[in-house]
Nucleic acid binder design. Structure first.
Lengths: 214, 214
DNA sequence: TGCGCAATAGGTATTTGTACGTAGAGTGTC
DNA sequence: GACACTCTACGTACAAATACCTATTGCGCA
């Protein structure tokens, strides 16, 4: 008899996890399932139990799916990670794929798609929800038309984060022990890089790009 | 033999719905379950099939849970609505309760809590996730300490919306065919009412209060 | 060793936002 | 008819943000 599939479920929404776990348990081929509610718990789990497949949410407290995937792939490069996201957000899937995810599903996928994704990654293939594929194609076209301006430095992200918290340049300067003029300059550069024209669009950018959470 | 419980599941995330439906189906008392993916579909469904309990998501396309609850309670006042939300957002639950919801669960509740909520509403009681209760208490204290300043007029919401889109007061004035000084004044009033100190916090407020979507 | 880049900082000018006044016209309500 | 509230608008002043300059330091990479 072959060993059953070992499957880790990583999601902070207990109800979602419970439901999915139940669905997975009621297939013909019963996998061995372990549930955890964030990336840190996953790493703790994997220390003693090697998963074949990891179904991983992205937005999670303590350690999110992107960090967790990076860590997992460093330590266990053979892991098959299937990302489970709420939204077809451009940044999410590119970061998750960079981090080593083999498949990307939306939470409004059907369970059939989950099964397809599992089959695919077990055979070494990739799998993406149709919505994700659309979004990837759309992005490819966009990126060809305009040079990438969207990578902020760590310092710039820090400044932007504090802008979103409602701090003025003066206040940010005091907090970071640098001159207000330096913050002015950073802010100017951030506006340029993000192609925003004022504070309001800056904040929207920060939220869309998960630099600031509401 | 008593009739089985009639239960409507309203959520745009198929996978979540499938999982929950499966869990509900595997209890001792099997309810009759119908699934729909937004408020409009729910109303269509109820026209021919009266549900005892409606498990309803809040954030949904086409028609969200708040609008849907309002409509449902107008037409079928005996309905027992259990709200299922992603976040413990103050505005959400107060609006859902206003709209007639009898219980409020978070999606990181356990399935046991779902069962408790169903039992509670069937007996005419209310049920809230512990996190929601905490949040309600916290809000009560806040509201007692400071007079309510948070209701913006329609015009103010319109101005705020356009601020979030990155428009300057001048541009908003031109768009609405009013003086820039009037927009200045509106903006000032909005800052006051929302207790924000600048554009950045204003945008955050707008997003938190669903005046602007990212 | 030279190059690019991130982080720092200043000069200067203009635009935009914030703050505190006042006030009329319109609407709905008690 | 008095009152409350919204939308409109202006005066004035100061604070903050935006725009376009230059420039030094340090660090890593080719």
């Amino acid at each position: 008899m072959t060993e059953s599939l070992k499957l880790a479920l990583v999601d902070d929404h207990d109800l979602f996890r419970e439901g999915l776990s139940f669905l997975l348990n009621n297939q013909n081929s019963k996998p061995e399932i372990k549930e955890v509610s964030n990336g840190q718990e996953l790493l703790d789990l994997l220390a003693n139990w090697q998963a074949d497949i990891i179904l991983m949410d992205i937005e999670m407290p303590v350690m999110n799916g992107i960090e967790a995937s990076n860590e997992v792939m460093k330590k266990y490069p053979a892991s098959k990670i299937i990302a489970l996201s709420m939204h077809a957000n451009e940044n999410y899937y590119s970061e998750m794929i960079d981090a080593g995810a083999k498949a990307f599903l939306l939470k409004n996928s059907s369970f059939e798609e989950v099964q397809q994704a599992i089959d695919a990654v077990m055979e070494g293939r990739n799998f993406f929800s149709p919505e994700i594929l659309e979004s990837i194609i759309a992005n490819l076209n966009r990126k060809k038309n305009q040079p990438s301006k969207s990578d902020l430095t760590q310092r710039e992200i820090e400044i932007l984060y504090n802008i979103c918290k409602g701090l003025s340049n003066q206040e940010i300067a005091e907090m970071l022990f640098i001159s207000k003029r330096t913050v002015d300059k950073h802010r100017e550069n951030i506006l340029l890089k993000t192609q925003s024209k004022n504070t309001a669009s800056l904040v929207i950018y920060a939220i869309k790009n998960h630099i600031f959470e509401v």
